[in-house]
Design a binder for these strands. Structure first.
Lengths: 342, 342
DNA sequence: CTGTTAGCGCGTTCAG
DNA sequence: CTGAACGCGCTAACAG
């Protein structure tokens, strides 16, 4: 392995000083075009690569963004990361990923790793297990701006990017009503997670807006799992007056519903309409295709990055906790499409 | 924002020198336990976080691994990244992700970014568009070890982690034969990608091993898309002597096959067996469940990391291009399960 | 077991 | 427009 080329090497080659070479490479206005050209040529000829470590140490900027997510496994976070890294890279930022695996302890470790690495900013989604959020404030106290996406905490004074879950729940339910379904049930998720709570509220809101009385028997306290969906479906079918449509809090739960209904020979969308939430990768490809709410994952990643970049660039006190709320986008497929609509 | 605490601050607080504090925090054997305890306490009390930048500059090690992938979007790479980051983080390494978006140009940019960031190692999967691989050798010349995973190039003298695609194709085809299918067709992928070429060879190998004559009419030159699968199915059905089973080079292509067969009212697995490759997330959830070959993505990520770590730790000339080949794992579901087998 | 000294490579003063 | 000098925070080498 050859020794790495430094500014010094370029300087010696051209009878200049490292300082001048540095300025030339950074396109400093007080350097003559001639020198800039010479320096650039030599840099390429010698195969110079700027040492970002030294540069970071000196300048106090790493051009690295930390991204902390519960897990890169499911499609959702993978897709958001996809959005973040692409826009970050094209803005000259590197992205470090850390997975909390839904654990509070690992989440804290991740923040520590980011502080140690002196990242310029942190994008994070709170893990399921996390109750105490002081580690995020800890990062802020260390001068590292934080933006939360998707899994947020409104008690914290931290800017965030989310989708409008209330609106999503509302739109899903309203679509089912428009399709002529009369008794619409809901498989809900853990209510301490704001997104799931909001979806339930949206469901209730749509019922009310359409003059349908809310029936607690039609809400099953479930989870975002296939198993929960199956349980819920079973439960609903055993009711004296079963529903004719089911809106599940998440696509996997909806998938469980669909599996159970198939097992029982119940036809969708004829006998029963089904609606999910997430627009997971599989939703398009199952039978029947699952109607769902798209959460605009790529856009979410991009907006999160833009926001943190904005905070980094105006590193003054203009750190106003902004809340960006994205519009949920209904994606209608066979599972809920009973009537041909205009 | 408060000033960041440095080793100096701890040293002053305890009447020690920064060097001693550094050694204590790094658990150097020549430091007394008493001092170590004192230093650790003070570090916590003052909320000290090691400046990894300075540490990296001095030591020449960043503890960062660059991961270069075509795209984080599809389940496959997301899952491998999942495997890499988890094992990397638990080994004290940070992971920087760069996406080439299947473009040669961006791939080169990614390598440059990694060299600039002085990463300790690079894990990469070659993009579809890449013909010239000199940028990987460029990284090696800069003293950064490289390990390729999944999309590799055997002409390069670079260690790699892959699955045995020949074996996968062989097992898939043999399973169909065992299930009593007689005329087995194959939807192949672009043959310049080694993995796809090997799967076709595996298919042919299994036919031969079972005394079945290879019929070129039963191989459709397709792609890894739903559309290609649909075309292939149509093509096969129009044959004078149509096949009774189809092995597709990839799950999305298999999905296309399934969609087309359903459209035509052909029952699976009774009238036609279908087999995919990849074990994509949706494969389990479609109807019928798709039999496929699992590529052990998590394991692949872990093995890749272990290999690069090994090279980093013995940074001498023991840089022997090892090739790790993982076993493909058949996952049998309804789409191919005609007979009850022992 | 601990202190002293020096320098990793860069960017930013302040001169000229 | 360019040069000289310094220091970011840490760790390795050498003393003692």
């Amino acid at each position: 392995m050859k020794r790495r080329i430094t500014l010094q090497d370029i300087a010696l080659d051209l009878n200049l000083t490292p300082a001048t070479v540095s300025r030339a490479l950074n396109n400093h206005p007080e350097i003559s075009d001639k020198t800039k050209r010479m320096v650039e040529e030599t840099a390429i000829r010698l195969d110079y690569n700027r040492n970002k470590i030294a540069s970071s140490l000196r300048s106090g900027k790493t051009h690295v963004i930390g991204v902390l997510i519960p897990t890169a496994e499911p499609a959702f976070f993978g897709s958001v990361v996809h959005g973040i890294t692409n826009i970050a890279n094209s803005n000259g930022y590197d992205v470090i990923i850390y997975q909390s695996n839904e654990s509070h302890e690992y989440e804290i470790k991740g923040i520590k790793a980011f502080i140690s690495a002196r990242v310029d900013g942190i994008l994070a989604s709170i893990s399921k297990d996390t109750v105490d959020c002081s580690h995020f404030l800890h990062a802020k106290r260390n001068g590292i701006p934080v933006v939360l996406f998707d899994r947020v905490n409104n008690d914290l004074d931290i800017p965030s990017v989310t989708v409008d879950d209330y609106q999503g729940g509302f739109l899903a339910t309203e679509h089912l009503i428009e399709q002529g379904y009369k008794r619409i049930a809901h498989v809900s998720g853990p209510q301490h997670i704001k997104a799931f709570y909001d979806r339930l509220k949206g469901y209730m809101g749509a019922l009310q807006a359409n003059g349908i009385k809310y029936d607690p028997a039609l809400v099953f306290a479930g989870d975002i799992s296939i198993e929960a969906g199956k349980c819920a479906a079973e439960n609903f079918l055993a009711l004296p007056a079963p529903p004719d449509a089911i809106f599940a809090v998440e696509d996997f739960a909806a998938l469980g519903v669909i599996k159970k209904l198939k097992e029982r020979g119940i036809r969708m969308p004829k006998d029963m309409g089904v609606f999910g939430f997430c627009n997971d990768l599989f939703s398009e490809h199952i039978t029947p295709g699952l109607s769902t709410i798209d959460q605009q994952t790529i856009l979410m990643g991009q907006e999160s990055f833009k926001m943190i970049l904005n905070i980094i660039d105006n590193d003054d006190a203009s750190y106003q906790p902004a809340k960006v709320v994205l519009n949920p986008v209904p994606v209608i497929r066979e599972s809920s499409l009973r009537a041909a609509k205009v």
